[in-house]
Design a protein around this nucleic acid. Structure first.
Lengths: 340, 340
DNA sequence: TATTTTAGCTAAATCGTTTTAGTAACCAAA
DNA sequence: TTTGGTTACTAAAACGATTTAGCTAAAATA
């Protein structure tokens, strides 16, 4: 039941735990421990199935080899993929990951940060909810290793790994314009979140540059929620009236919106792309097999996750490293949802 | 930079750290600490933003309030949902969760269990890969709190939360039979995994009970993999030859298979349900918006996650508790993919 | 022979908690 | 005056590792 400790090994061999510690940390040579004793210690450790107590190690050394991850929702495949990459990349360097879903709720993320602090994590990867800038700032001020992903706070100088949201939205919207769509709607969420704002701005700029009017009635910025009421209402407003449809195309800022939006479109008997052309951010499975496979802006999730971990571990190793903002390339995948 | 410790508070107030510990653990009354001092301690703790060091606590008490979760792949929404529920339910009781994706690889899960042991987690929730029975057995033998989900080992007496796979597959297959399908294929994975075996058995029994032949050519049991080659090959074999299709219906044992399978079906110009009727386990978003929304066996993921945590925490509290096998109800959702 | 060096090891402090076993001061009862 | 019981607190050990400082005996050097 009780695990074997350094002391147990030491007692069994009649040596000091200091020696055992040296050997098991590969410092046998450095502290000129007798080769035979080294061997014996290692054998005995294996025999007794010694597993170092990371709590004790962490307490003594001040390092836990653990990183805290705060994302909006691990059930959302977007974050699931990110989480997976992060876990994998971290494991390569011997780091554990504690996952927290903040639900885009700053109160929750605050608690989670506190919890992670108590767990003495070595660093954080955070996809920060709206209005959690103060929390991030507090970490940054204390020079606590931290990388933001997916969003950031323009007024805070922190590490960040993400994409160029403006450009991606601009490109997606231009694609719709090029195909002749005139009344392009945009559905987004979380109005005060920088990445979402950038997407909306990119959308608007594309319209402006093409000489099309920016119609605020076609822009729906929802609040974050796990239910769909608000989105359905917005869709009804845009596409509800048979002969007087407000829009002939739509840009979804997230796939969560897009999936439900497309479900609505299908169930109201509208055709994609004939009645409505669709472009969306992110590329979930659903988009590949739905009625008209969806044209998307795909984010390089693997690379984002991997890079975030690398930047974080670098900062952990070199606390004096200054912050990096890394913008990765998106991929625009053209499928059938816009016609041609 | 350095966090405030009990000692810092004690020093500031000129009392012992014992006293501070008592007060902050709510044992002020029990140890008859003066009310005023209690108040002062609490105020000072807040002022100095005291955060208990969970490593030290864990080291001393032998309890970390952390549970280890090992699943196949957090990027798979099936496990994402489970993970989310587990995290949430655990948080309610003040427990943290360390996530590990085993990739269905027993070598990985072995390492992960070791890592979690070193982290002194209080218990485990595991969706065990094939051939990892010995790992699970070792935990069970040591009476380490553990709950298996999604699959289990019939020869090991452990806690388990899941569904009746046989019954669910039987029902799904019967549905296809009732609708007049005669050549029903079954695509599954991981031949030595009990839950998958049960599904195949349920499928076969339904055929037998309906007087239909069990044709091994229609049963494809794949190996676990992140790429799709094997599945595409199986699909081609079943549906490739235009005028001599082997099957007129298909049961997918997992949604991962189903999504790719349906993608294949769509891209080969076959129609669901006219050419092929489809039923699948699990209910990802994709199934709701694809060409013919898919009829599915939906697992109660929320309840599975929640129950798993409850069983685990109960076992942590009561080490003498004997093992529970909890089978939850599935939901059969009829959509359009089978015709009518 | 006396001194220094080296090889090979250990004692003890430390990290931040919890918890056991006290202690000191005071008052009441015998 | 002694005993016993409260009240209000503290010292110190313990958890399991790491790490600094130092010790002894033998070998090498002066």
């Amino acid at each position: 039941m009780k695990r074997t400790s350094l002391n147990d090994i030491a007692a069994k061999l009649g040596v000091s735990k200091t020696l055992v510690s040296f050997v098991l940390n590969g410092k046998g040579k450095e502290f000129r421990i007798n080769d035979e004793i080294c061997k014996k210690v290692q054998e005995t450790a294996k025999e007794m199935n010694y597993q170092p107590n990371r709590l004790a190690q962490g307490l003594r050394t001040g390092k836990t080899n653990t990183i805290g991850l705060i994302i909006a929702d691990i059930a959302n495949p977007f974050f699931g993929f990110l989480g997976r990459e992060i876990e994998q990349e971290a494991a390569k360097s011997g780091y554990r990951v504690i996952f927290c879903s903040s639900d885009e709720n700053p109160e929750k993320s605050k608690q989670q940060i506190a919890m992670l602090q108590q767990s003495q994590v070595d660093g954080y990867i955070i996809s920060p909810p709206m209005y959690s800038g103060d929390q991030v700032l507090a970490l940054v001020k204390n020079n606590i290793p931290l990388v933001l992903i997916d969003r950031f706070f323009p007024e805070i100088d922190s590490n960040y790994v993400g994409i160029n949201n403006f450009e991606a939205a601009y490109k997606a919207t231009s694609h719709l314009i090029r195909l002749g769509r005139k009344r392009i709607a945009c559905i987004s969420v979380n109005k005060d979140m920088i990445n979402m704002q950038e997407r909306t701005e990119g959308y608007k700029q594309a319209l402006i540059d093409a000489g099309l009017p920016v119609d605020e009635n076609l822009i729906k910025i929802l609040t974050f929620s796990h239910d769909n009421k608000e989105l359905v209402k917005a869709m009804k407003d845009l596409f509800g009236k048979k002969e007087n449809r407000k829009a002939d195309a739509i840009l979804f800022s997230t796939s969560k919106l897009g999936i439900i939006g497309i479900e609505f479109i299908s169930s109201s008997g509208l055709k994609i792309p004939e009645d409505i052309a669709v472009v969306s951010f992110d590329d979930p499975d659903a988009y590949k097999i739905c009625v008209s496979p969806v044209t998307v802006v795909n984010q390089p999730l693997k690379e984002i996750g991997k890079t975030a971990v690398q930047v974080l571990l670098n900062k952990i190793k070199h606390p004096e490293a200054k912050s990096q903002q890394i913008i990765l390339k998106t991929e625009f995948i053209i499928r059938k949802s816009c016609g041609s």
